[in-house]
Computed example of a mutant assay.
Amino acid sequence: MASPTAARGGVLAALTGAGGRALAWLEMYRHFLVLYLDFTGYSDIAIGSGLLFGIRIPENFRWPLVSTSIQEFWQRWHLSLGAFIGTYLFKPIVRQTGKPALGIFLAFLFVGLWHNVSIPYLIWGFGHGAALAITMMLRKAGAFKTTSALAARAMQLGGWLFTISFVSFMSSFANQGSLEGPVLFIRSLILN
Rank of each mutant, 00 (worst) to 15 (best):
3 S>H: 07
7 A>T: 11
7 A>R: 02
12 L>N: 13
13 A>I: 05
13 A>H: 07
14 A>K: 12
19 G>A: 11
21 R>T: 13
22 A>C: 03
22 A>I: 03
22 A>T: 11
23 L>C: 10
23 L>G: 15
24 A>G: 15
24 A>E: 13
26 L>C: 15
27 E>N: 11
29 Y>A: 14
32 F>T: 00
32 F>M: 05
33 L>C: 09
35 L>V: 10
35 L>E: 04
36 Y>R: 02
37 L>A: 13
39 F>H: 07
40 T>I: 11
41 G>A: 11
42 Y>G: 12
42 Y>I: 08
43 S>H: 10
45 I>G: 04
46 A>E: 14
46 A>Q: 10
46 A>M: 12
48 G>S: 13
49 S>R: 04
51 L>C: 04
52 L>A: 15
56 R>M: 13
57 I>K: 03
60 N>W: 01
61 F>M: 10
62 R>C: 11
63 W>I: 05
64 P>N: 12
65 L>R: 00
66 V>N: 08
66 V>R: 04
69 S>P: 05
71 Q>Y: 06
74 W>P: 02
75 Q>Y: 01
75 Q>T: 09
76 R>D: 14
79 L>S: 07
79 L>K: 02
82 G>V: 08
83 A>P: 01
84 F>A: 14
84 F>V: 07
85 I>L: 15
86 G>H: 10
89 L>Y: 03
91 K>W: 01
92 P>C: 03
93 I>A: 01
94 V>K: 00
94 V>R: 02
95 R>A: 15
96 Q>F: 10
96 Q>M: 12
97 T>E: 01
98 G>N: 02
100 P>T: 03
101 A>H: 08
102 L>G: 05
103 G>W: 00
103 G>F: 00
104 I>H: 04
104 I>E: 09
107 A>K: 01
110 F>M: 08
112 G>T: 05
114 W>V: 12
116 N>M: 11
116 N>R: 08
116 N>A: 15
117 V>K: 03
117 V>Y: 12
120 P>H: 05
121 Y>V: 00
121 Y>R: 00
122 L>K: 00
124 W>K: 02
125 G>A: 04
125 G>W: 00
126 F>V: 03
126 F>T: 03
128 H>Y: 06
128 H>K: 02
129 G>Q: 05
130 A>G: 07
132 L>F: 01
134 I>A: 15
134 I>D: 13
134 I>K: 02
134 I>V: 15
136 M>G: 10
138 L>Y: 13
138 L>H: 09
139 R>Y: 08
139 R>D: 15
140 K>R: 13
141 A>M: 05
144 F>S: 13
144 F>E: 14
147 T>Y: 05
148 S>Q: 03
149 A>H: 09
150 L>F: 08
150 L>G: 12
150 L>H: 09
151 A>Q: 06
152 A>K: 07
153 R>F: 09
156 Q>C: 10
157 L>Y: 07
157 L>C: 11
157 L>R: 04
158 G>I: 05
161 L>R: 02
165 S>T: 15
165 S>C: 08
165 S>I: 06
166 F>I: 03
166 F>D: 06
167 V>K: 06
167 V>M: 14
171 S>Y: 09
173 F>V: 04
173 F>P: 09
174 A>Q: 06
174 A>V: 05
177 G>P: 10
179 L>R: 01
180 E>D: 15
181 G>N: 04
181 G>F: 01
184 L>V: 02
186 I>H: 07
188 S>Q: 09
192 N>M: 06
